[in-house]
Design a protein around this nucleic acid. Structure first.
Lengths: 220, 220
DNA sequence: ATATCATTCAAACAAACGTATGAATTAAAT
DNA sequence: ATTTAATTCATACGTTTGTTTGAATGATAT
């Protein structure tokens, strides 16, 4: 079996697709663009993945599998270290969103490219994407939600769930929109260079998220 | 001139396009779907709007024109009432995001449908959308940013700009993802019915946003 | 060396896309 | 009543889309 060739082709396709999907969206990227950029034959996507839909899913699966495993690993480690005591909210937030933002520095795990793609895709309307992402996220979200419930026993659970939702949104958007539409940051942040901006994004975002999580409850 | 017919056709197209874009995305919606749902001829989109791109822009323009005018009106009124004194951060946040969320209840301004579409589109990679939205938002964002700078003179401007960015993300996602991917909220919020959920979203989100905006600054 | 299997390749497929055209229809203006 | 202009309509055009096919190529195992 000629395995080296096929493994190479698969990854070349996934890398090219990841970049192009980020730049132009799923529907905005054709199979010919992907195979062209990857330097492989047009038919190889269907040969290796079956369809374009399956390719999209595999682009996410190879990154999310690691991310969510890592998230669970971190949470489990923290919980074991804490014994019976609840974790600090800042630990939990750091465990969930810190692992995500850490991928930005790791080019071998997709770097900023994948993060931008993920951030944008969380609101994609396509059915097969929604159900696929929901499946990939289900376990890790349940575990982290449970940790937050335990850490904040006095806060109504529905309230915590919503704030988790808000935190996810702020994070996705912070990443997806960094270059995308420079609405808010514009000349304000151009002083800093791009890498510096990314390094400082994490502490900035963490402060914001924790501030939101610990905000006084709304009075209805 | 036959005006009643054409105005009707125009709006039927815009309404149908708005709904379909929200449900299936821009590329996922064909002209035949739009004209079919609107009950008009296929060629009428090109006749009235020129192209599909121009239709997309008009879908946003008719809603954003009102929204951003209203935002400026509210801000100006608050500033006049305050005289020389800076506004409270909560006023500013309420002025910007409250007007947006208020559209959810107003079906004549697009209701939840448009809000979801807008939330998702803020991270759309297509060039013509990015530049178009940036243009539509520029003035109102500058004005509100300036108000925040004045309200929080001790906070570095870059920090405020970032937090504005985060707030926009949390809000967009809160709206766009409400039905989309029910990651976090799932069975947790199913107790409340849909209308109740929307009514309670606003105070919940506002608490979160203000908590994030007023969070202690990150230490680098 | 030969047979076997996975992979690559060029070419073609039908389907769907956005857009353009010119005739038919309708309403307003003279 | 006739002219004029705006709108609607059915139809067609040329591209591009994702996918399929069957032959060519490559490497591995016997």
């Amino acid at each position: 079996m000629a395995e080296t060739r096929s493994v190479d082709t698969r990854e070349r396709i996934l890398d090219a697709a990841e970049k192009l999907f980020t730049a132009n969206g799923f529907d905005g990227t054709s199979m010919r663009q992907i195979t062209g950029a990857a330097g492989v034959n047009l038919a190889s996507v269907n040969y290796h993945f079956g369809s374009k839909e399956a390719l999209v899913q595999e682009v996410f699966r190879r990154r999310l599998a690691w991310l969510n495993t890592e998230r669970l690993r971190v949470l489990t480690a923290m919980e074991q270290a804490a014994g019976d005591k609840p974790l600090k909210p800042s630990q939990i937030v750091e465990g969930f969103f810190g692992t995500l933002l850490g991928m930005a520095q790791d080019e071998s795990r997709g770097g900023v490219t994948f993060l931008r793609l993920l951030g944008r895709t969380l609101t994609d309307p396509a059915d097969f994407i929604r159900t696929f992402l929901a499946d990939e996220y289900q376990e890790v979200v349940e575990r982290y939600k449970a940790a937050l419930f335990k850490a904040l026993p006095d806060v109504p659970r529905a309230e915590i769930a919503w704030r988790f939702h808000f935190m996810l949104g702020a994070t996705s958007y912070a990443i997806a929109g960094t270059d995308a539409l420079r609405l808010v940051t514009d000349w304000q942040v151009d002083e800093e260079d791009a890498t510096d901006r990314l390094d400082r994004l994490q502490p900035r975002l963490m402060s914001f998220l924790l501030g939101g999580l610990r905000a006084p409850l709304p009075k209805f």
